[in-house]
Computed example of a mutant assay.
Amino acid sequence: MTDTANTASPQIPGRRIEVLDLARGLALLAMASYHFSWDIEQFGYLDHGTTTHGLFKVYARSIAGGFLFLAGVSLMLAHSTGIRLQPFLKRLGMVAGAAALITLVTFFATPDTFIYFGILHAIAASSVIGLAFLRLPAVVTVLAGIGCIVLPLVFRADMFNPVWLHWVGLSTVPPRSNDYVPLMPWLGPFLIGMGAAKLSIATKFTERLANVKTGDNRLAGITRYFGRHSLAFYLLHQPVLLTLVWTTSQLAPPRPVDPLPGFVAECEAGCADGNSAEFCSRFCLCVTDELISQGMFDGFMAGEITPESDARIPAVAEQCTAASQMAAPE
């Protein structure tokens, strides 16, 4: 999402493309609105699981897909005539460095759900992979992108379950992370963006797009400004939002909530990628029952027990996965 969303400046010689700056700025504001909803859920102002289901889930995935699509467009626009190595490495270093910072901060803040492969990691990795597609025909790049989206829907394997392979996106056990954006399927919109940009360059659509003005009013100007400085916006918006929500919680605390429905909802949301609703319902009910019966539920919810610190957690996940698969209707 950042100069993230740009591994490259969205411009043609001598001119920025205002429409792309505006689109990126709008995507950032949409992201901030979703994160604000997520924040107030974490503080107890919304029922747990609200932002991981239904329209909220669609909204979040649309935002992530939009950022990656724009990142692919920007990479192609910047390097369509040849890889400009120094600018590419500079931007890649900024994105990868910001991704590492996010991982470090969240590891200490939320160790059981820290971000080890989020949107920034995905954009950095996709940018490197995208270099191999710069010279390929647009249709090949788009088809490869579609393939990345379809692959995790039809294929997953236990060999991708180790934590160090979760970034691929083909594991059968849903990982725990506050922002999980693996290459499969999210490399897909990035490559589709590259293909769309290549086609736009060939048809001179980008030149016409560069002539489109997005308005001189203050709101449009601020939105474009955010789009041009998206990395800074991404890094700063959550601390600002969390400070606002925390301050509000001190002045007007939320009502206490039962953690059980939220745990089940979050479990089902994390399970939904590549699994049926029936399987996820059985799996999450099994996990909940096992955690409660073994006296681990409260400790798990409090972060005192994690899959890394207690071998019983992954054992429960494996047991419930097998039981849920066996219970599947013929």
Rank of each mutant, 00 (worst) to 15 (best):
D112N: 11
A99S: 09
G118E: 02
P152F: 01
A125E: 07
A125V: 15
F114W: 08
T172R: 15
I115C: 00
A132R: 13
V173A: 10
A138S: 15
G195K: 06
D112L: 06
V140R: 14
G145C: 11
W186C: 10
H121E: 01
H121T: 02
I129H: 07
A157D: 15
A100M: 15
R156L: 10
F114R: 06
V173N: 12
V142N: 10
I123T: 09
A124D: 01
F155E: 12
P174V: 01
G130W: 02
V163I: 12
V128D: 04
P182H: 10
F190K: 05
D112M: 03
V105H: 01
S127V: 02
F190Q: 08
D158P: 09
F108Y: 13
F155Y: 15
L101E: 00
T110R: 05
L187G: 10
R135S: 14
V128K: 03
I119M: 01
P152G: 02
V163H: 13
Y116K: 09
Y180Q: 04
A144H: 06
H166P: 01
T172A: 13
A122E: 08
G195M: 03
L151W: 05
A124C: 05
M194A: 13
G193R: 12
H166K: 09
V139D: 13
D158M: 05
I146L: 14
C148T: 08
F117L: 08
T113A: 12
R176P: 00
V154K: 08
G97W: 03
G145M: 08
L143W: 13
T103P: 00
N178I: 11
